[in-house]
């Protein structure tokens, strides 16, 4: 036990502070930075619109489609912006109004009202959906995936390439303990980095919401959602970490399984239900508290085939992940016992 900790401490220093770790931090912090940036722009917009002329929504809603633009200008008054351009032989015009909490665009084609767009200055509901999408499609699928790939492949394969693995093998440590120690180091590093990233981005999401929204959310779901987001990021590290550690140990070129896994995880949604359950992502998504909207880029035809497997219940998902991890680690420990130092063939 003590030895595991000593090994983990030695390894962690590298995992946290090496120059390569910078890229992992970048991946983990990117969503947080984006949400902070968005928060700033929302706040800027709020203060900007605070002084704009208000046109009651009822006035705008009453204007029927087909009304000429001159008439609209007469009833609704001066717009906040007025944009004109030409496209595909049509004269287009867009007038923007503000009703106190929403921005409303009136779109014209050849001088006649064609459609209406309404957008709130900021909608918490929309933002939390976007967050769910970012979390599942970017954070879990890409950031945690590649981050863990980098951190965990480094543990064994990286040392073989650096020709420094034998120093570990020359320590009076059982190989299994060594494996566990290294896994713990990678796990702590990745869980802290990605759990922290999730925490930061979640608080960034909350930082700019209007106080009414925030109060309501904090009193109901905020704590529960935040916990599960962070937990699923950490569990992602547990699952991907063990797979990549084993891949780095077993295979000369772990990129090919990584590639296969990446493809597998991304086509996973189209597979029959049973196969869906064989992916790390499936369990992680089961744990995520808010279901994201479907990926908007999926073509409609495919959307019909896309039948998400019924999410596994959270505890079953966690247990499943842990069981898979234990199994993979067991296989890895069998390998590491027989592992030889063989730098020549890299």
């Amino acid at each position: 036990m003590n030895q595991i900790w000593i090994i983990a401490k030695l390894e962690m220093r590298r995992a946290f502070f090496s120059r390569r770790a910078l890229w992992v931090y970048l991946l983990a912090l990117f969503p947080a930075v984006l949400f902070f940036g968005h928060g700033i722009s929302v706040q800027y917009r709020r203060s900007e619109y605070a002084g704009k002329p208000v046109t009651p929504a009822a006035v705008l809603d009453r204007i029927p489609v087909g009304t000429p633009d001159t008439e609209v200008l007469a009833t609704a008054g001066q717009p906040i912006t007025d944009r004109k351009w030409r496209r595909r032989d049509l004269d287009r015009r867009s007038l923007q109004y503000f009703d106190g909490s929403n921005r409303i665009w009136l779109e014209f084609e050849n001088g006649a009202l064609k459609s209406r767009n309404r957008r709130t200055l900021n909608s918490f509901d929309e933002d939390s959906k976007v967050y769910a999408g970012v979390f599942q499609f970017f954070y879990l699928r890409l950031a945690v995936f590649f981050g863990c790939l980098g951190i965990f492949i480094n543990l064994f394969r990286g040392e073989m390439i650096d020709k420094s693995l034998h120093y570990w093998f020359l320590a009076p440590v059982r190989r299994e303990i060594l494996l566990l120690g290294k896994y713990c180091a990678g796990l702590i590093a990745s869980a802290v980095i990605f759990g922290g990233g999730a925490l930061l981005s979640f608080s960034a999401l909350l930082s700019y919401q209007s106080s009414a929204d925030l109060q309501g959310y904090l009193q109901t779901d905020a704590f529960y959602h935040g916990t599960w987001y962070i937990l699923s990021a950490m569990l992602g590290c547990v699952g991907y970490g063990s797979v990549f550690l084993a891949a780095g140990l077993l295979l000369r070129n772990p990129i090919i399984p990584a590639l296969v896994m990446l493809l597998w995880e991304s086509i996973n949604g189209f597979l029959p239900e049973l196969l869906q359950k064989l992916s790390v992502l499936h369990y992680l998504q089961s744990i995520c508290p808010v279901a994201p909207p479907l990926d908007p880029n999926v073509p409609p035809l495919m959307r019909m085939i896309l039948a998400p497997a019924a999410p596994t219940s959270a505890w079953a998902a966690i247990l499943g992940l842990l069981a898979v991890t234990a199994l993979v680690l067991y296989a890895a420990s069998r390998t590491v016992r027989r592992l030889e130092i063989n730098y020549g063939t890299e």
Binding site: P31, L34, G37, V130, G133, F137, F138, R141
Partner: peptide, 10 residues
């Protein structure tokens, strides 16, 4: 992925 979430978040 990053370009998509930039589009969506901002």
């Amino acid at each position: 992925g990053a370009s998509q979430i930039i589009n969506q978040v901002l």
